[in-house]
């Protein structure tokens, strides 16, 4: 009974906690008034937004998720040096291209994360996803080998995401 009560009134415990922490961080204080207001907001906002929630696959392995985040941060650093070289270098050597990448993962959240990762890393920007969510269209700043690029995206970013979400 306690369980159903909790689920009814605190539908998103993790998000409530994040909201509470963010509120205190934004105000940079631990005053009792702000703690009270933050707690009220952290309890009230999830109650208001719970009807808008769409079901998403759960994160299976938190360790893998952390490792994925670190890997993406490292890739962002490397990617920036690469793009910087291309920007400074001669324009006539640039070989931009549109590529369609077949998707194996399902669900809106994993695809969104994959698309954002692609946008942030080596010379690629995701532009559009097909309606059946089977293809992702990306723009590449400098394409040397299409098959190799697709294979790299699939093995480096898609496979870990597949393990994280287990789909």
């Amino acid at each position: 009974m306690i369980r159903s009560w909790t689920r009814r009134w605190i539908p998103m415990p993790a998000q409530s906690l994040i909201l509470f922490a963010t509120w205190l961080l934004l105000n940079n204080t631990l005053a009792p008034g702000h703690i009270l207001l933050g707690a009220f907001l952290a309890l009230a906002i999830p109650l208001l937004v719970v009807p808008m929630q769409a079901p998403q696959p759960r994160v299976r392995s938190h360790l893998r998720a952390v490792r994925y985040t670190l890997m993406v941060l490292y890739d962002i650093l490397v990617a920036n040096f690469e793009v910087a070289m291309r920007v400074i270098g001669p324009m006539s050597k640039l070989q931009p291209a549109f590529v369609a990448v077949p998707l194996d993962i399902e669900g809106t959240l994993p695809i969104t994360i994959l698309a954002s990762t692609i946008s942030l890393t080596p010379g690629t920007v995701s532009a559009e996803v097909s309606e059946d969510r089977q293809w992702l269209y990306i723009h590449v700043l400098h394409l040397t080998d299409e098959a190799q690029l697709i294979a790299q995206i699939k093995s480096r970013y898609e496979a870990p995401l597949k393990e994280i979400f287990g789909c």
Partner: peptide
């Protein structure tokens, strides 16, 4: 319009209509 030498411009229409390539 994209640069003339951009490869894979045939994907343009499909991407616009959100169709498979």
């Amino acid at each position: 319009r994209a640069l003339k030498r951009t490869q894979g411009q045939n994907l343009f229409t499909a991407a616009r209509k959100r169709q498979p390539p």
